[in-house]
C-alpha cells in the first residue's frame, strides 16, 4: 500500500498544471524511494519526468513498487477541491484501483477533513531509456526570465533557435511578419549573486517548437530557477528543481533547418 502525506496540496496542484497539457494519462510509479512519473506526449516530441522524493513528504510509506495509473484530468479536478495550504494525503491499496486523497485544513473556527476518491486505470505505456548525456552547454537562469522569453517569442513565430556561444545565450525567432532575438550575456555581477550561469564546452545551436517551451515554463511556479542542458543534435533538457523533487522535460529538436 501507499500512504504519502504532503504538507501542502499546492505542490501537487502545480505539478499537475505543469504536466497535464502534455500528457493525459500516466503511471505514478511509487516505491520506497518516492513517486516518479515519466510520460511522453502523443507526438513523441516531448517527455516529462517528475520525481518526488520520499523524504519530501511529511510521512511516506510504500511497501512494494506500485504503479498508479492516473487520468491527469480527473486528478486535476480532485485537486481543485483542495486549498493550496491543505495537508494532502494520498492513499492506495495494493490492488491500485482507487486513489484516495484527504485534505486537512485547520481554520480559525474548526478543523476540516475532506476525503475524495478517484478511479485508477491500467496504463500500458512504454518507458523510454534516457541515456546519460554529457551536455556541451548548461545554462541556469531565473525561471521567470525563461517564461517571459518563450512567451514573448511565441507571439512572433512558432519556433525558436537557441544559440549558446562565448557571447552568452541567444534566443531567436523568425516569424513571417516579425522577428526577434534576445541575448543573455554572462554577467560577472549577476553570476556573483548566483542569478544565473552559462557553462559551455563548445558552441551549440538548436531549434525548438515554442509551444512546448511555453508549456514547460508552467513549472516556473515550482522553482525560481531553470536549467537548460544542450548539445547539438540531441534533445534539450529543461530542469526545474524544488525541495521535494524535480520536474524535467526533454524536447526533440527540429532538424534540417
Amino acid at each position: 500500500m501507499l500512504e504519502a502525506k504532503l504538507s501542502e496540496a499546492a505542490l501537487l496542484k502545480r505539478l499537475l498544471d505543469a504536466v497535464k497539457e502534455l500528457v493525459s494519462d500516466a503511471n505514478f510509479e511509487c516505491n520506497e524511494e518516492g513517486i516518479q512519473l515519466q510520460a511522453m506526449d502523443n507526438s513523441h516530441v516531448a517527455l516529462v519526468s517528475v520525481k518526488l522524493y520520499a523524504s519530501g513528504f511529511k510521512r511516506y510509506r510504500c511497501d512494494r513498487p506500485l504503479p498508479l495509473g492516473v487520468n491527469l484530468g480527473s486528478l486535476t479536478k480532485v485537486l481543485k477541491c483542495a486549498k493550496d495550504d491543505d495537508i494532502c494525503t494520498l492513499k492506495a491499496g495494493d490492488d491500485a484501483d482507487i486513489l484516495s486523497l484527504t485534505y486537512e485544513a485547520k481554520s480559525a473556527y474548526a478543523d476540516r477533513i475532506a476525503e475524495y476518491e478517484m478511479k485508477l486505470m491500467d496504463i500500458d505505456a512504454d518507458q523510454l531509456g534516457i541515456p546519460d548525456t554529457d551536455y556541451d552547454a548548461s545554462v541556469t537562469m531565473p525561471s521567470s526570465e525563461f517564461l517571459r522569453i518563450v512567451r514573448d517569442l511565441s507571439l512572433l513565430g512558432e519556433s525558436v533557435r537557441i544559440e549558446v556561444s562565448k557571447e552568452g545565450i541567444r534566443f531567436v525567432s523568425d516569424g513571417e511578419a516579425a522577428n526577434g532575438n534576445i541575448l543573455i550575456k554572462q554577467n560577472a555581477e549577476a553570476s556573483g549573486k548566483k542569478k544565473g550561469s552559462i557553462e559551455m564546452n563548445s558552441a551549440v545551436t538548436l531549434t525548438f517548437s515554442l509551444k512546448y517551451l511555453v508549456n514547460f515554463s508552467k513549472s516556473s511556479s515550482l522553482s525560481k530557477k531553470v536549467q537548460l542542458m544542450m548539445s547539438n543534435d540531441v534533445p534539450l533538457l529543461v530542469s526545474y528543481a524544488f525541495n521535494q523533487g524535480h520536474i524535467r522535460y526533454y524536447l526533440a529538436p527540429k532538424i534540417g533547418d
Binding site: G129, K254, G256
Partner: peptide, 14 residues
Amino acid sequence: PSAQGSLKDFFGKP
C-alpha cells in the same frame, strides 16, 4: 523549413 524530430530517434527502450 525544418522538420520536427522525434524523441524515439534519440531515446531507446531500456
